[in-house]
Nucleic acid binder design. Structure first.
Lengths: 207, 207
DNA sequence: AGTTTTTTACTGATCGTTCAGTTATCTGGT
DNA sequence: ACCAGATAACTGAACGATCAGTAAAAAACT
């Protein structure tokens, strides 16, 4: 083993790889902000590049095209939802309890850049290949919700109805947060999440 | 008075104006279908023109630019919602009753082309001027919902909560229909509307 | 003849993408 | 310790395709 030497000014291979990953990540984070703010089509790679103080071709060192950048942003959002789902599943409890936990996390994700990006992206913005994966991802999430719903209806913790329609109703309210939530506004993300989920769980009818 | 003559083969001024209006309308209807299917940016005016068996400059005879076409599509959607709102207001009843009527109509509109277009359009697709009007229209509709909600909460027919959050929750579920409803699917528009509204009114909790 | 409608042919701008080349850093052989 | 070749990071400049939008002429209509 090499003895523990004082700091070397030279980076190790691991350091270099980490730096590359960091830069790649910075591209995604900058890009997703532009996409959410100006829209995908109205964001040029020059916008992203100059915000990072580099030139456009530099971006092509880390990504092979604009489609890939968008797709990876979306994937970050999907991944967050998947984690929320497995966390909710792990915690156990009735269908209703698990669904509520999932919805609260889901709502929070929809106030954050990558989550917002998933909602704001439409099929036509992606190339056929990514579009397929995008659709598959949306179906996957829809299935997760539908499954928990069906379980809750089976165990009596959730009112019985067509799980397909209910799933879309929930997804609609939650996804829509990505279209109206304002971090500068006077409602913070947690208040929004609680409020939306409460409305969905208890409905409009009094009592 | 001119006597009632037999049919003249020449069109009257009114006929000409009507024909022009019909053609203008056809452009909107064709355009909105493309916008909804391929997205605004991915739809070229050549697409629209050739679907109508004319060339692109013909479209410019009826509209001054692409932005105007999109904006008028949106306006048709807004107009439909406004009508639904005033119809619900006219019918009277408790806040809950009027809100339910509004939501059912709203849901149906979101299964139809111009309604879908409103949901699918994002700020960045419009020019500054239309964008302002678009935002104003969205605010207007939001205010309508919030007002009925507040009235229902005041008269006790709707459970009390923050009307802003509840309004967005409802709008989310309803608008989202525009993103998932499939006219070819096995659920018809009325079933979807009933199901979504039922879920929102009664919530997930049993009983 | 004059007006409306439509077309042909073209322009101008945007922007994703690529290419050729520079600099700096790293690696392996001596 | 040194050098040669490879590799990574990055840039300036240009290409190619797509479209929105326009000008001018032809066609249709009254």
């Amino acid at each position: 083993m090499t003895p523990a030497i004082e700091e070397s000014p030279w980076a190790t291979r691991a350091d270099k790889e980490k730096e590359r990953a960091t830069k790649r990540d910075a591209v995604l984070r900058t890009a997703v902000r532009f996409f959410n703010e100006k829209g995908f089509h109205s964001t040029s790679l020059d916008d992203v590049a100059s915000a990072l103080n580099v030139t456009k071709p530099t971006i092509y060192h880390y990504f092979s095209n604009k489609d890939e950048i968008l797709f990876e942003c979306i994937n970050m959002g999907f991944e967050a939802i998947r984690e929320a789902a497995s966390k909710a599943a792990r915690q156990g409890g009735s269908g209703m309890v698990r669904l509520q936990a999932l919805m609260l996390e889901y709502a929070l994700i929809k106030t954050r850049p990558f989550g917002i990006c998933v909602t704001r992206t439409t099929d036509d913005q992606l190339r056929p290949d990514s579009r397929k994966k995008f659709r598959a991802g949306k179906r996957e999430i829809n299935t997760i919700i539908e499954t928990v719903l069906a379980e809750g209806m089976a165990d009596g913790s959730i009112r019985k109805a067509d799980p397909r329609i209910v799933a879309f109703t929930l997804a609609g309210s939650l996804n829509w947060i990505a279209r109206w939530y304002d971090p500068e506004g006077d409602l913070d993300a947690q208040e929004v999440a609680n409020g939306v989920v409460d409305t969905l769980v208890n409905g409009l009818r009094p009592q």
